[in-house]
């Protein structure tokens, strides 16, 4: 479904990604793991068009994304749940969800999808008129995921959805990701909770200083000695 071939990306003169190749097949859940500053966020930003591809090829369902302006990429079915959630703090929960349905194809189905999101997150229905900035961390994450779902995407890019949340809430977030998979969404997830995320995904990539170090099935990576020592600490 989503394919990167030797993708490089840079912030000015600083190169953040080197020849990254990665693919996600329809229906799969794939994790990108790696230490702080490895370029995980950068990778997702490149896919959703927030950062241009400096070199390489990027395709969604066989179609190149390189000639699309950034705001058209979501139309191909890619929705990005941003790092740190990035809700509009002084807009209500419902207005945040409305922004998720901004694209032409999604506007007509706004009400319908709003119901779906409210059913998925009853808490969001209770807080629909509240400013997003006043929600708890877990609620904000629900709202951010809900906003991404509003465009009716095929693949969800999730950047550390469990960051900064209490362990119980982290469990809930992972449970939710699992549920979304069950509903047919393809997921590309960046996580620091290595152990937990490896129980959730089919495959994973390990990114270090902007390059893919290893990749394999979740089981293979969970058994990988270096990965265990570096990130799981057991």
């Amino acid at each position: 479904m989503l394919e990167l071939r030797s993708v490089s990306a840079r912030y000015g003169s600083f190169q953040a990604l080197f020849d990254v190749s990665l693919d996600v097949r329809a229906g799969e859940a794939v994790a990108v793991l790696g230490p702080n500053g490895a370029g995980k966020t950068t990778l997702l930003r490149v896919i959703s068009g927030l950062l241009p591809v400096a070199a390489g090829e990027l395709t969604m369902e066989g179609r190149s994304l390189l000639d699309l302006p950034p705001h058209r990429i979501i139309e191909t079915g890619i929705a990005h749940v941003l790092e740190n959630r990035r809700l509009f703090p002084r807009m209500s929960v419902e207005e945040n969800l409305k922004m998720g349905a901004f694209i032409r194809g999604a506007r007509a189905r706004f009400r319908e999808r709003l119901d779906v999101v409210y059913e998925l997150f009853p808490r969001m229905a209770e807080r629909r008129d509240q400013f997003a900035g006043t929600l708890s961390g877990g609620e904000q994450q629900m709202c951010a995921i809900g906003r991404a779902l509003m465009s009716g995407p095929k693949i969800l890019l999730m950047d550390e959805p469990s960051a900064g949340l209490a362990p119980v809430i982290v469990e809930q977030v992972f449970g939710l990701v699992d549920r979304l998979r069950g509903e047919g969404y393809t997921v590309l997830i960046v996580e620091q909770n290595v152990q937990q995320v490896l129980q959730l995904v089919d495959r994973a990539y390990l990114l270090e200083v902007g390059s893919i170090k290893t990749s394999g099935s979740a089981a293979e990576l969970a058994a990988d000695e270096t990965l265990r020592r570096a990130y799981i600490g057991i």
Binding site: H71, I74, F88, M91, M99
Partner: peptide
């Protein structure tokens, strides 16, 4: 409120 992320919403 947040101009940088608008492209991810198709704006």
């Amino acid at each position: 409120q947040d101009r940088e992320i608008m492209a991810t919403m198709g704006v």
